[in-house]
Design a protein around this nucleic acid. Structure first.
Lengths: 113, 113
DNA sequence: TGATTACTTAGCCATATGGCTAAGCTTGAT
DNA sequence: ATCAAGCTTAGCCATATGGCTAAGTAATCA
């Protein structure tokens, strides 16, 4: 499996900002328009839409403009690469613990006879 | 439960750089010294240790200097806040899907009689 | 004691990030 | 035809990030 590092870079960077995480939390409950979401944030509209652009650039959300209104939604499965990476780390770590356990067990076995 | 946003900010930001993820992948296999890890990265030592400082600042790794050598290790459970946040998102999303399903089911029930 | 190893600190540089205001530009309502 | 709503673009600003080199410090080795 390839690393897809750039995608991880973008996803993690997008997640590192509290405004953007709040947006994602909102969208997890269902789609919303730019203005609807902006109303909950004490920030200029251009600054706010810049955050949306980052989230979309990272593939975490999608958006579509209908008339003059842009509607946003969570990208289904967008967190998968991130969760996969974390799961892999966990597996590596667990593997190390297991090997350490084996090692300790062997040590105590060697001591017995 | 409080949000602990600053911790998440730091953790996600630390994870957004490929060099730092490589360091974490290395440390998941066991502790290592600064020089050992630096050998695998085509980068000046000061730049490299800056990455280590970020990881430590985010609470993802710990380090201890013995003599003139600094040894680094993964912080056990350091990914927990990150994984918890992702799990919560997943739960929100799943809740939404469930409610949508209920809604669709109700619609079709109402149509039957 | 003197040299070498293993960092550490200081300072510089280019680019990225996150905020703002002001001025567009469609689209929808009147 | 006009006006308001809902973004969008452009440009500015301060700070943060990620890289470098050069110089400093502390510990070990010969």
């Amino acid at each position: 499996m390839a690393k897809l590092d750039p995608a991880l870079d973008l996803a993690f960077a997008a997640l590192s900002d509290p405004t953007r995480r709040r947006i994602l939390e909102r969208l997890a409950r269902g789609p919303a328009t730019v203005s609807e979401m902006h109303a909950a944030h004490d920030m200029s509209l251009p600054s706010f839409t810049a955050h949306l652009k980052k989230l979309e650039g990272a593939g975490l959300i999608t958006s579509e403009k209908t008339g003059r209104v842009r509607s946003c939604a969570l990208s289904p499965g967008a967190f998968a690469p991130v969760q996969d990476w974390l799961a892999e780390q966990r597996a590596l770590w667990q593997g190390r613990l297991d090997r350490f356990d084996t090692y300790v067990t062997q040590l105590s076995e060697e001591r017995k006879p």
